[in-house]
Amino acid sequence: MRNILFAVAILLAGLGISSPYHFQLLTFIGIHTLLALGLNMLMGYAGQISLGHAAFYGIGAYTTAILTAHFNWSPWLALPAALFLAVLIAFLVALPMLKLSGYYLGMGTLGFGMITYVLIREWSGFTGGDSGLVGIPPLEIGPVSLSSGRACFYVVWGTVVLGFIVCERLVNSRVGRALRAIHDSEQAACAMGINTAQLKISVFMLSAFLAALAGFLYAHLVSFISPNTFDFLTSIRIVTMVVIGGMASIWGSLLGATLITLLPEWLHIFSDYEMVVYGLVLMVIMIFLPQGLTRGLLDIYERSKRRAGVPSTTAKG
């Protein structure tokens, strides 16, 4: 039901907006939502941190860019190749890495992200190095080119809706419950017969899949990519989106991605002090809403309802 409302809202927004600037902004929010959604499955639900998620974003973008711009593949053929490569690399990385936990897993994934970034930058024969890779063709469905602002908007947000449906179904299934169980107590999850090692690898692959999908869309919508989009700061920004939006909340990914994408746009008026205000906003949110925007706003809503004399729906045991 919520997803249908969401889809309708997207449809109406697409019809109502005409400014190319707004379309571009919303398209980026959509791509960031996909990134945050993938990381939220790993971090929020399974409780495993990744500080190198931009690597999978980059692998998705560069694989499709190289295949389409250098080798003239159709983007629709490059898509499965990009996704497969990202998931395969995720599997190989996760195999030794997810034996680590906490800070150590953070350091490990951080290293992986940096290695990928350096490879992209230095392997200039393929990737164009620092000067970037140009001439990535736009997506096409038959004769229709999806290069207009509105088309990009619909492609990206259609993917986001699909991503939401998939993740929501997962979270409320046997697999999703097992993931949340690992987050709460890995020892008890083991004692319930959950193969925690295998499940952690699977969810790492899922989050890499979503990041690579976001990278694929990004490459074809922007038609030019350069290494800086996939650096360490991007990884941190994705983590921030998840934490600010709300861990273990699918809609939190949308809120977090929206805020982190819009904030720099709004803060232009502070010119030189932009980054200072940006940091302050994040600090204030974390101090007053430590559970993230979704949980925090819901709590405020429930508290105001209680103050108005309406009995709360959440029972306490």
Binding site: R180, A181, D184, S185, A188, A189, A191
Partner: peptide, 11 residues
């Protein structure tokens, strides 16, 4: 079962 009760507290 565990000596110190290991439930999935957020579930």
């Amino acid at each position: 079962t565990f000596q110190n009760v290991e439930l999935f507290g957020n579930m």
